[in-house]
Design a protein around this nucleic acid. Structure first.
Lengths: 328, 328
DNA sequence: AGTATCTTGGCAAACGTTTGCCAAAGCTGT
DNA sequence: ACAGCTTTGGCAAACGTTTGCCAAGATACT
């Protein structure tokens, strides 16, 4: 079914139907408009987005490239972005790059040939394709992780501040020499959180030991980092985990070794996922408002499309207090 | 950049370039082909999928409608479907219906106007739009939850059998009168698991008490169902939770009341998400191979497109034994 | 030499839209 | 009666593809 079908049913030309579909009411008589609207209604016509996109040069499709959908943080951001895009009349293509540069480049090319109108990037993996992409000035918003090639549209939190808050928390709980667990594969987010944490601790007069580990997922990272920590030194009073997932991994090792959190060792992390309040009551988290990210991402995309200079959106973080507000 | 650009660069006609792009090597001389390939290479040309889709009538885009991306089960299925689609040269549009009928209908219409080539549906919410959709015979594969209007392509597990396995497990642990926790909002999956569980228990000579609760998410369901259970009767030896999320919710209530799992009460569930092995070592699960779903979904879609009668794929489930195989 | 076949490649229509332009008709005012 | 304006609506080109058809040249066969 196409404009032609409707036009035939209403006995007008295709152009007339097209104009009415697009709300140009001053180009046809009231009577014609009603006839056409009736035909559209009875046929259940909806304009073909392919034809429209081809002609108009805007597809109303946005691509989201995410590092790993199985990470609940990414899933939450994807979900909130999807909802915000839908509300704005867009549709989301989801691409899971698994943080692999070749796959990322492949996706960037594929999305270009899909003529997508904008990009949401949750990645900081460098790749030749991404470098060109940024250089071409494609309309993109980075979320969680900063653009590794340039500054620009970004939605995230003040990771330095969040790290500092975690340090304050541990300090207030009496930890003077906490450990910090972090992944070998770094990123702007990780670095900032780490920097904020250790700087604040230094300011306060404390010091921290660091345990780093490689790993496919932050779960593994946490587990391995905790292992190397415990194998190397005695149990610290407190442990700072740079993400919830790292905390989960670390907790697993603690559990296996019969250590109890927070009785034997306080644990703090950054992310504050909803699941933690159910499954990890032992964990204290700096809560990041991932549910809000989508709205701001779409705002920024809008600014870019309108040609406005678009900056960063740094959203507020806080210690987890009221869980209920987590649900919309 | 379009075929026209390449044609100009290679000094041939648009048709010739198009044929070469599509692998018709017998319609041009070796020399011409090389010249065209060179031009494509240097320009970095990729065919515009919009034009192609419009002409060919197949968009190589598949829509996935999922009930709630924040549910890790859905996220896993989405992730595996995305990977399988990508490998087959397709692209995935993700739609989060939040199990709301109007939103589902809105998405179905929107996807139709996007000319998507196939659908992956993780829903059993009835809606007028879905009824028409099924009646039209659109190419769709249902995953996890069965088509509420007809039989047909489906990927899932034997939920009756999984329920029975859970009953066997609790029986083997000495539970003679376990409780079962389930959501008020039912579905084929829930019903089957419940039926399999209680039938097997009856066969074995046991009986079960049931606790049902409404809730936005299964986390709430588990919490509330556990509350109503404990308020009503004494603590059973074992609790069967119809999903991992229900188990998490129930555990939270148990934790608040100072009850320990599995010391005070054995808990079993169906899903076996990766996260459980990290965060919920107290939980025993029937493991569902959600990571494999994507592959089978795409297989079935292929069968449908080729016009083959496509049936159901019932994948094997098992008790969680080796966690490591969970990762690809 | 004449005919048949193969190779090479271009023309043009079509997919469903949008929109600038033109034309016919209906009006007003002189 | 005629110029000028508004209303109404159609024609046709364009977006980037694909593909049936035709044509010119080359080669092979009788």
């Amino acid at each position: 079914m196409s404009l032609a079908t409707v036009a035939a049913a209403a006995e007008v030309s295709i152009s007339t139907v097209s104009r009415i579909v697009n709300g140009q009411t001053h180009r046809a008589s009231r009577e014609t408009i009603e006839r056409v609207r009736g035909a559209i209604e009875t046929l259940g016509y909806r304009p073909n987005q392919l034809g429209r996109a081809l002609k108009r040069g805007e597809s109303r499709v946005v691509a989201m490239l995410t590092a790993n959908l199985n990470n609940p943080v990414m899933a939450t951001v994807a979900s909130s972005a999807e909802a915000a895009l839908r509300a704005a009349g867009y549709v989301m293509i989801l691409c899971d790059t698994h943080d692999r540069p070749e796959l990322q480049d492949e996706y960037l090319k594929a999305m270009r040939s899909q003529a997508v109108q904008g990009y949401i990037l949750v990645t900081n993996v460098k790749s030749p394709g991404l470098a060109e992409f940024v250089a071409r000035g494609e309309p993109a918003v980075f979320a969680c992780r900063r653009n590794p090639y340039a500054s620009g549209a970004f939605v995230g939190i003040d990771n330095v501040g969040a790290g500092a808050d975690a340090a304050d928390y541990l300090w207030s709980r009496g930890c003077r020499e906490p450990a910090v667990l972090f992944p070998a594969q770094s990123s702007s987010t990780i670095e900032d959180r780490l920097a904020g944490f250790s700087m604040r601790l230094l300011e306060l007069g404390g010091r921290c030991s660091k345990a780093e580990a490689p790993g496919l997922s932050h779960l593994d990272v946490g587990y391995e980092a905790a292992r190397s920590l415990l194998d190397r030194a005695s149990l610290p009073q407190g442990v700072m985990c740079l993400s919830d997932q790292i905390a989960y991994g670390a907790h697993r090792l603690f559990f296996e070794r019969g250590l109890r959190v927070p009785d034997d060792c306080v644990m703090v992390s950054i992310d504050g996922s909803t699941l933690s309040s159910w499954l990890a009551p032992w964990l204290t988290s700096v809560r990041v408002p991932y549910h809000e990210f989508g709205r701001h991402i779409v705002d920024l995309l809008g600014e870019i499309w309108r040609g406005e200079a678009s900056g960063e959106r740094i959203l507020p973080h806080a210690f987890q207090s009221d869980v209920s507000s987590d649900f919309e």
